[in-house]
Design a protein around this nucleic acid. Structure first.
Length: 1122
RNA sequence: GGGCUUGUAGCUCAGGUGGUUAGAGCGCUACACUGAUAAUGUAGAGGUCCCUGGUUCGAGUCCAGGCAGGCCCA
């Protein structure tokens, strides 16, 4: 058998393609699951992507993370079923369809039927499925694409219904109304998820008003009027709003109970009427200047109005103000509960950060307002519409209702697309402000820039608006959610404790309702009077109920009776009417449910559980591992957790990686708009899937944001994969020349391997342990970096470099076999360790090395285990010494301008103890070979030439002497040679510091020898090396011999000779030095260059010329035929 | 505004429980080596460890307050 050899450079993209094709032909993924049948399961859930957009590079990152741990666990012997899936419902799809059809939500049911609309959604949602599947395969993400769950399929929806019914039966489903973000432009409520789309919160300039609410005289207000000078005074409470259009819906004013407020006498700055106003003490300075306090009150109305005069008249706490009643600002329409309205109430969210420290309350248009009003029994201002149904003063299109007098029909924000820059344009807010000024009820009107949420697709401002909703009572299990969350291993931990933990601490009920068309319908039917209702938990149940309805003649026939494929979507379910126990017809609640319920239901619905497959579910719940973007924390991670706790009283996942964002290389967010998005297909095509994955994983931990720089992928490819490929090529080249093959049953015994072999094998054991540890703890980055360091630094740069001669010299000896076996084992094991991260290249490497032995794929193998018996700490330690000494010697050669090819007699290494001496002694050969010296000479105390210096051990001394450390340190650095020697010999030294006697121990200092008088030395920490640069004739000749070898090797290579070709060399006989070198080192030269003959001739023509430092020599080189 | 997170060389990143001289790779400069060669070695240049205060004999590391970026939530 031959090890395949490849041309440099390797085409990594092609490796990916070839391996992919081979996997598919040989069903390796299927085998990786089926071959683990009967083994413990490692449960993984695929967070369903939505296929209505093209995948990006961040998906490669997210999916690489998922893939790594599934492959790793498979290699640990576990069975890892991986069901793919698709998220198919939701607003993005609806909006895309609407955009394509050029319609809005309002057109549905008119211009297009719900049936056709949903059909369009169904077609649209999988539009990019082929691209996704393609990327999934090309990047090597192993997941079952053939049997995915799809959230729009009837079985999936049926499972959701079954789960909803379970929640219903537990009393976790209820209907209420809350103030919710609502987009009049889109005609729909917005989930918090939608509201948190990027770009939703924007800085806008709005007209803001500080309105004056006129206090009515009364018992509570008595103190105010007293301070204002009498019951006839005009006393106003100031309240600020950034949404003036809500002022007509005002029904209360909120104060902070403990906030101090002041009564100020002053003037209305627009009408100059004398008034008294109340606002928080902390904010008086915002509206009134110091100068104004001193300005004359008289004459303001007539005079110039630049300086508003004012006087402080009294101070009160918020508690003093609670209960005060005031006049309604816009008295446009009567409403229910009016007599309880227009009061000052307390609220804990009131601050003195901005405004006036008093908050205008409109319970229909603010969530905080709604809650505070409920607590204080303040009514909401609701008016009847044409059908008599009560609603707020703004209709669902964002327009004032007819009761709003002169403002009736106005849009509260620019929802009708008016040109705001046009000369005549005036917003409702502006017109209201003008009106208030005219009424002398505006204290200050100004533009104010603040952030305000916008509908993420229509770009129009969101309103907070009262909407009916079904809720899941997640707050009922809040404590259990928190408790079980603590058992989940979050990567990074802070996402679990911080972001997710805090979210659970501040949990509100899960708003399930969506007023849409394409999604899972809420399976609840109600009678018109809302007294009877039913929650349907399965198709069978629905059919049975329809049959009852047919009998009761509520329906004419059962549309699902004849066994055709059932579609549970709208509009079909809307046409189903059921009958209540009392015989009344029941209508389906028109809502759809939050798509996040769909995804949270994955653990159950992917198996059509609980309708069937209870055993499959039991085996696959909860998940051992999931991974998604950190933005899913309150999305998928939450819905999974919430449903698992409520339904199963369990976590849904035990380990979770919340990965960060992939940014463009400048740290900007990638976006098509900015043109800095990285195309995953192009990246894989250019660099291959492995380098892409490796870069994504090794460069930054998945939970940190990654700045994607293609230059980084290039570097990974060159440095890591290039080095690994070279190392393999090196092995293949020589193993093939020697006809070497691995024979597992006949290996060189470990004890018989060379020092270097045992060293790299020891390093390999450490690497195996490290990689396993890091992958066990879900840290792929550390694993990748460890592998990378091993391959480049240890295996290639030290082991192979120092072993080269062993591979290409001589016969297949035991030592050479040991080297082959060692290198083979290192490469094979690396192929396993890297397989989860770089699955294609690992496969390529494994299959090149295995020669058909063992499992056909690296992904079917069991990962090597660290063999403690081959770990040798002492060996690793002394090899490090060898590396450092070599490095020092190289640096000395450099300083003395002595090339490595010139042999030198010796290096001198001072050693202060026998251990170091013994350690270095064991690696002397390696050092000598590496730096081309004849031997190492150790200098110990006996030699008498060592000059010692001493360095304080601050860590130890600091603990002992604390504040005196500086003085002690200085004293130590001043130690004489005699003192050092005394400390060494006697084990202690008494000295004085600042007149106080102290005793030093040997551990208090570090003794080193970083100087050898008369020698050029180099030091690295405690290590010191000196180089003997004396050149003898013999050394010079040997140096020249090596130069000659080098020139001949270059010539061989330039002449295109194969490594194994034998040659005949003829040199021109013109340099005595060269002749002498050849005479002395002929055998060496012939061996090295594989020359059968090395002769001199008076004349050499027709050949090349070898250039040496001081001369040039003509040479002829021929291939030897025998 | 709140929560979480990041900030170390031109770039990408390491830097248990505080220890005085802060590292690596890439990039740059110079020299060397080389039958692994688009590799490698040695040396050099390059740092207010985001800022300010505090604790300490000693802070990149601990504490507090800021600043800047990111994500999430209002």
């Amino acid at each position: 058998m031959k090890y395949p050899e490849y041309k440099q450079p390797l085409d990594y993209a092609k490796v990916g393609e070839d391996v992919l094709a081979w996997w598919q032909e040989n069903h390796i993924f299927e085998k990786s699951v089926s071959s683990r049948e009967g083994q413990p399961t490692f449960v993984f859930y695929e967070g369903p992507p939505s296929a209505n957009g093209a995948p990006g590079i961040h998906h490669v990152m997210a999916r690489a993370v998922k893939d790594i741990f599934c492959r790793y666990q498979t290699m640990l012997g576990k069975q890892v079923p991986r069901k793919g899936g698709w998220d198919t419902h939701g607003l993005p799809i609806e909006l895309q369809v609407e955009k394509e059809l050029g319609i809005t939500k309002e057109d549905i049911g008119h211009k297009i039927s719900i049936e056709d609309y949903n059909q369009r959604c169904r077609e649209t949602v999988m539009r990019f499925k082929a691209q996704w599947d393609d990327l999934t395969q090309k990047m090597g993400y192993w997941v079952d694409l053939d049997n995915p769950y799809v959230t729009f399929e009837p079985e999936y929806i049926e499972s959701c219904w079954a789960l909803l019914k379970k929640l219903y039966d537990k009393g976790f489903l209820y209907k209420g109304y809350t103030i919710q973000p609502y987009s009049p432009a889109a005609g729909t409520g917005l989930s918090s998820h939608e509201l948190n789309q990027p770009g939703t919160y924007r800085d806008v300039k709005d007209t803001t008003v500080v309105a004056q609410f006129k206090v009515k005289p009364g018992e509570v207000a008595e103190k105010l009027f007293a301070a204002a000078g009498g019951p006839n005074a005009d006393v106003f409470i100031l309240a600020w709003t950034t949404t003036p259009w809500t002022l007509p819906a005002n029904t209360g004013l909120a104060v902070g109970k403990n906030i101090p407020y002041q009564l100020i006498s002053t003037f209305n700055p627009y009408t100059f009427e004398p008034i008294h106003v109340v606002l928080a003490r902390a904010l008086v300075g915002r509206y009134f200047s110091e100068k104004g306090a001193a300005a004359p009150m008289e004459g303001y109305a007539e005079g110039d109005h630049k300086l508003l005069p004012w006087r402080l008249e009294g101070e009160f706490t918020g508690a003093d103000l609670v209960g005060i009643t005031y006049e309604r600002l816009f008295d446009l329409t009567p409403f229910e509960g009016e007599e309880r309205a227009f009061r000052v109430i307390p609220a804990d969210f009131v601050t003195t950060e901005d405004g006036t420290g008093i908050v205008h309350i409109s319970p229909t248009f603010g969530a905080d307002d709604f809650r505070a009003a409920q607590l204080a029994d303040i009514p909401a201002l609701m008016v009847p519409d044409a059908e008599g149904t009560l609603g707020p003063i703004v209709d669902r299109t964002g327009r004032y209702v007819p009761q709003m007098g002169e403002f009736a029909g106005r849009f509260v924000k620019n929802y009708d697309g008016q040109d705001e820059t046009a000369a005549g344009y005036r917003s409702l807010d502006v017109d209201l402000s003008i009106r208030l000024k005219e009424m002398s009820r505006a204290f200050k009107v100004e533009k104010y820039e603040h952030t305000y949420p916008h509908c993420w697709r229509t770009d129009k401002p969101v309103l907070y608006y009262p909407l009916d909703s079904w809720f899941i009572k997640t707050t009922a299990v809040k404590d259990r959610l928190i408790e079980l969350n603590k058992t989940i291993n979050w990567k990074p931990e802070s996402t679990g404790t911080g972001r997710f933990g805090n979210w659970l601490e501040n949990l509100v009920d899960w708003n399930l309702s969506r007023s849409r068309y394409w999604g899972t319908p809420l399976p609840i039917w109600r009678t018109q009077d809302r007294t009877e209702e039913i929650c349907i938990g399965s198709i069978a149940e629905l059919k049975a109920e329809i049959d009852k309805a047919v009998v009761a003649e509520v329906m004419t026939h059962n549309p699902y009776a004849n066994g055709e494929k059932i579609d549970l979507h709208r509009p079909y379910v809307d046409d189903i009417f059921l009958v209540s126990p009392s015989g009344q017809p029941m209508y389906r609640e028109p809502d759809l449910i939050d798509v996040w319920f769909d995804s949270g239901a994955v653990p159950y619905a992917q198996w059509h559980y609980p309708i069937e497959n209870a055993d499959v579910f039991a085996k696959n719940f909860p998940a051992d591992f999931i991974a998604e973007g950190v933005d899913q924390t309150r999305g998928w991670f939450f819905t999974l957790h919430a449903l698992a706790v409520m339904l199963e009283d369990s976590v849904a996942f035990k380990n979770v990686i919340a990965n960060g964002l992939v940014l463009a290389k400048d740290g900007q967010k990638m976006s098509k708009r900015l043109g800095n998005a990285v195309d995953p297909f192009a990246t894989i095509k250019q660099f291959g899937p492995d380098a892409t994955r490796w870069y994504l994983i090794a460069n930054a931990p998945p939970w940190d944001n990654l700045k994607f720089d293609p230059a980084g992928v290039v570097e990974v490819q060159r440095r890591f994969f290039g080095t690994l490929f070279n190392t393999y090529s090196f092995y293949a080249l020589y193993a093939n020349l020697d006809g070497f093959e691995i024979d597992e049953n006949n290996r060189v015994a470990h004890a018989d391997l060379s020092e270097l072999d045992r060293w790299i094998l020891s390093k390999l054991q450490s690497l195996i342990a490290e990689v396993r540890l890091q992958l066990d703890s879900y840290d792929p980055t550390k694993a990748a970096r460890a592998i990378q360091d091993f391959v480049t630094d240890h295996l290639s740069n030290w082991y192979v470099r120092l072993s080269r001669r062993r591979f290409w010299k001589g016969e297949l000896t035991t030592d050479k076999r040991g080297a082959y076996e060692t290198l083979h084992e290192c490469l094979s094991t690396v192929s396993q360790l890297m397989a989860p991260i770089a699955p294609f290249f690992a496969e390529w490497l494994y299959r090149n090395l295995s020669g058909g032995q063992g499992p056909e794929s690296v992904h079917l193998t069991l990962l090597a285990e660290a063999d403690a018996t081959r770990l040798d700490g002492a060996l690793e330690e002394r090899m490090e010494l060898a590396q450092r000494i070599s490095s020092l010697a190289h640096s000395l050669r450099k300083k003395s301008v002595l090339k490595v090819r010139q042999p030198l007699q010796r290096i001198l290494v001072p050693v202060l103890n026998d251990t170091t001496k013994a350690q270095v002694g064991l690696v002397e050969d390696l050092i000598c070979a590496e730096i081309n010296v004849k031997h190492i000479e150790f200098l110990d105390d006996e030699s008498g030439v060592l000059v010692k210096s001493v360095k304080p051990n601050f860590k130890r001394l600091g603990q002992q002497y604390g504040p005196r450390l500086k003085a002690v340190g200085a004293r130590i650095q001043a130690m004489t040679a005699a003192e050092i020697s005394k400390l060494e010999k006697e084990g202690s030294l008494a000295v004085e510091v600042n007149g106080e006697p102290i005793t030093l121990a040997p551990d208090d200092v570090e003794i080193r020898t970083d100087d050898l008088p008369g020698w050029l030395v180099a030091t690295d920490g405690p290590l010191t090396v000196a180089l003997d640069v004396t050149l003898t004739d013999a050394l010079r000749q040997e140096g020249l011999a090596r130069e000659l070898v080098n020139r001949l090797q270059n010539l061989r290579k330039d002449s295109g000779l194969e490594v194994q070709d034998r040659i005949r060399v003829t040199l021109a006989d013109q340099e005595p030095a060269l002749a002498a070198a050849v005479a002395a080192f002929g055998d060496y030269i012939r061996t090295e260059t594989q020359a059968l003959a090395l002769d001199f001739a008076p004349e050499v023509s027709g050949g090349s010329v070898l250039e040496f430092d001081d001369f040039a020599v003509p040479v002829r080189l021929e291939i030897a035929t025998n």
